[in-house]
């Protein structure tokens, strides 16, 4: 074989190798792509879902105030709340347990985002009702939202006998209102924090220098210790110069214990009232003096309207 032949052979060889390579590799890579023994599911592009942060709190209340959670659609939540007397009242009052302030209430979820509720408290004989709407839902995935936001408005009616029946009394004097924006973020499985800018309006106040409108900012949160137990805390800071000096800010700490259909909330709080205008603007207890109520909320839910499950086909 002469050298030119060798050139030819070499050239041929290279060309064929190139052709073969071109043939072989795409089919190899194609094969690799569709190698289903390992990953059939990866052939079907996944539709990214919106993953909403659920169960930021165990209950629709942190302690006294509303949490970001709503009662789900069609669910009735029967709530019994007790606050015993101040623990510093001593052994004669069995450290407060001889007294009891209570609120009975019903909450109902009209939709998963809209709930209403009403209740009655024996303290000041207040009837209250509220509406709460979840505006934004914290989510990851297809739609990302860093926080959940809800709006709560309440109207409260004090039905104590008129202090002075002789003077001209107006029904509207009995009313007070609260409006709150709840902004919450569930940081992880255990920790949720919430802030609540709040406006309380009282139709009547005892003295002209006391404001009818009171602005406050609340902050609260929960930390889950186990799946069914969490510690909660809540504080309402009233912006200064709006209230009589006899009133203080509301601070509460407690635990949530969940057992099936019940959530038990046990707490210590310096607030006697369990409605917003009451605990935000009329708290008289001082923690440092031992003016602390022990109390509990019991929530029992009943499914009134069953959800439609996807049709069995």
């Amino acid at each position: 074989m002469k050298n030119p032949d060798m050139h030819k052979v070499i050239k041929k060889l290279f060309r064929k190798v190139a052709v073969i390579t071109a043939f072989l590799f795409p089919s190899v890579s194609f094969y690799a792509q569709t190698d289903d023994e390992k990953d059939l599911l990866s052939l079907v592009e996944e539709e990214e879902a919106v993953n909403y942060a659920t169960s930021a709190f165990k209950s629709s209340r942190i302690i006294n105030g509303h949490s970001i959670e709503n009662t789900p659609e069609g669910v009735l939540d029967f709530r019994i709340s007790h606050r015993f007397g101040f623990v510093n009242s001593g052994p004669y009052d069995f450290f407060g347990l001889d007294q009891a302030f209570m609120r009975l209430g019903f909450d109902y979820g009209i939709t998963d985002r809209l709930m209403v509720g009403m209740g009655h408290s024996n303290f000041n004989k207040v009837y209250d009702s509220f509406v709460k709407y979840k505006i934004l839902r914290q989510s990851t995935g297809k739609r990302k939202m860093p926080v959940s936001v809800a709006w709560v408005s309440s109207i409260n009616c004090n039905t104590l006998k008129w202090a002075d029946p002789e003077r001209k009394n107006f029904f509207t004097s009995r009313l007070s209102y609260s409006h709150q924006l709840l902004i919450a973020r569930k940081f992880n499985e255990n920790l949720t924090l919430q802030i609540m800018p709040t406006l309380v309006h009282r139709n009547i106040v005892p003295r002209p220098e006391i404001r009818n409108d009171v602005l406050a900012v609340g902050a609260g949160g929960r930390y889950k210790l186990t799946k069914r137990l969490s510690i909660n805390a809540e504080y309402f800071y009233v912006l200064p110069g709006q209230m009589d000096s006899m009133f203080t800010n509301s601070f509460s700490v407690g635990v949530d214990i969940e057992t099936g259909g019940h959530v038990f909330q046990l707490q210590f709080t310096n607030s006697t009232s369990m409605v917003e205008p009451g605990f935000i603007t009329e708290t008289v207890g001082h923690w440092e003096k031992g003016d602390i109520h022990f109390g509990f909320n019991i929530s029992r839910v009943f499914t009134i309207k069953k959800r439609k499950s996807p049709a069995e086909w």
């Binding site: 879902a49 993953n51 659920t54 169960s55 789900p72 659609e73 069609g74 669910v75 979820g109 998963d112 259909g261 839910v301 499914t303 069953k306 959800r307 499950s309 996807p310």
Partner: peptide, 12 residues
């Protein structure tokens, strides 16, 4: 999370 129950609390 795509499992749906008749009772919301059960789902939770």
């Amino acid at each position: 999370k795509a499992f749906e129950f008749e009772k919301a609390l059960m789902q939770e």
